[in-house]
Amino acid sequence: MVESRKTPDMSVDLAGMHLDNPVIPASGTFGFGREYADLYDLNILGSISFKGTTRDPRYGNELPRIAECTAGMINSVGLQNPGLEAVLAEELPALAKIYSKKVIANISGFSVDEYVACAEAFDQADQVGILEINVSCPNVHGGGIAFGQDPKEAARVTAAVRKAAKKPIFIKLSPNVTDIAEIAKACEAAGADGISLVNTFLGARIDIKRRAFVIANKKGGFSGPAIFPIAVRMVNDVYNAVDLPIMGMGGIASAEDVIEMIMAGADAIQIGAANLVDPWVCKKIIERLPSLMEELGISSLKEIKGCAK
């Protein structure tokens, strides 16, 4: 006998990792959770993709790092993070105290060796469920951008990390390419377990009074609701091209956006810039999802993945 469900099923699976719901704060907008743990119980979240970590500590780019845009923002933080050693020794134990589920380790690098070193280390951490390999951060000169913009380079990182780690690996793709599906396919062929997309779009703002770029690094990553339709299109492009689970992101700010992104082909979703203007947005979305699913006649999120005709 099939048991009838009283509440819609929000749970999703990501390459073997079970999530109670699909809502994951995106790397770089949630730190290691501390600032948000003061505001609500983080254990309601599906998972957390923590601050992008590099092998060595990084201060990041000079200030200003932030520029506002219509329905979004540009950031040029430049992968500021305390480095692999400090993340393992301090940040992960601190995160374990405020979040009891598995987390997603977001890794950035400037060489294949660096990706491998980080992947090997996080592969040993019980707390980590998925390795999310950022081959797309557009902020660093000579940095990850080269890997994410060339299918061969993306495959090279994927294959090296695949060899170094047993945990599922998701490659986080840059949208700053002509054909994102081609990159996703190259990652799939090289052994990726899933794809995360999209990272930020390269953008710039100029202060017309000063005749100067607003941010110190001139160009940065554009995110926020303005990019949502492009993200939906790109997630669908990748959904149609590969047979892998997808974490969809880019401008999601409401429960309706979550459903739309899943209908485009995502299994789970990440929320980035919206956290910065409404720090309770993930909680609000998780609380709203069941009633929205009921209104739309959705009994399980798994049923609507990529259902858009």
């Binding site: 949630f30 600032e35 810039a273 956290n275």
Partner: peptide, 13 residues
């Protein structure tokens, strides 16, 4: 120049 204002984004380090 800040984005979040509560320590999450590292926009104003």
């Amino acid at each position: 120049r800040m984005a979040c204002g509560f320590g999450a984004c590292m926009g104003c380090s």
